Amino acid sequence: MLTHLGVLVECDPSVKAIILKYDEEKHDYIVEDLDDDRHLVIKESQLQNLKERLGQELDQKVMQPEESESE
């Protein structure tokens, strides 16, 4: 019996590492880790939540004062 519908996600290895860390907490996101650097099957019901959580995390990392683009 199929318990979770999944979506194949391709991402950078660094993003995959973040998702794996999130999933350690409650196993809310990953249906299957495809054992390569870039692919996961994510629970379809959690995809939007994961995108929002990743967006917040990546925004915080990108907005560092020492990484100013002014010349």
Rank of each mutant, 00 (worst) to 15 (best):
E24S: 09
H4N: 14
S45D: 13
L54V: 12
V31R: 02
D12W: 03
E66S: 09
Q48Y: 13
E44Y: 12
D28N: 07
D33Q: 05
D36L: 09
Q60E: 09
Q48P: 06
H4I: 07
Y29L: 05
D59P: 04
V31L: 05
D37T: 07
Q48R: 12
E69T: 05
N49I: 04
E25I: 13
I42N: 07
E32T: 09
H27P: 02
E66W: 10
S45K: 11
V9G: 00
Y29Q: 04
M63S: 10
L20E: 06
E10V: 09
V15F: 00
L20G: 03
K21H: 14
L47R: 04
D36K: 03
Q64H: 14
V15D: 08
E57H: 14
V7K: 03
V9C: 14
H39G: 15
R53W: 08
D37M: 10
L40S: 01
E66D: 10
H27D: 02
L40K: 00
L34W: 15
V9F: 03
E71T: 10
V41H: 07
E57W: 08
D59S: 04
E57P: 01
S45F: 12
S68A: 11
D37F: 12
S70D: 11
V15I: 13
E25T: 11
G55N: 08
V15Y: 00
D59M: 15
H39S: 15
Q48D: 14
E24V: 10
L5E: 11
Y29V: 07
V9Y: 02
D37E: 15
E57K: 14
Q64E: 05
E57G: 10
M63F: 10
I42A: 10
E10P: 00
E52G: 08
E67K: 13
L2C: 15
V9H: 01
M1Q: 15
L5Y: 14
S14H: 04
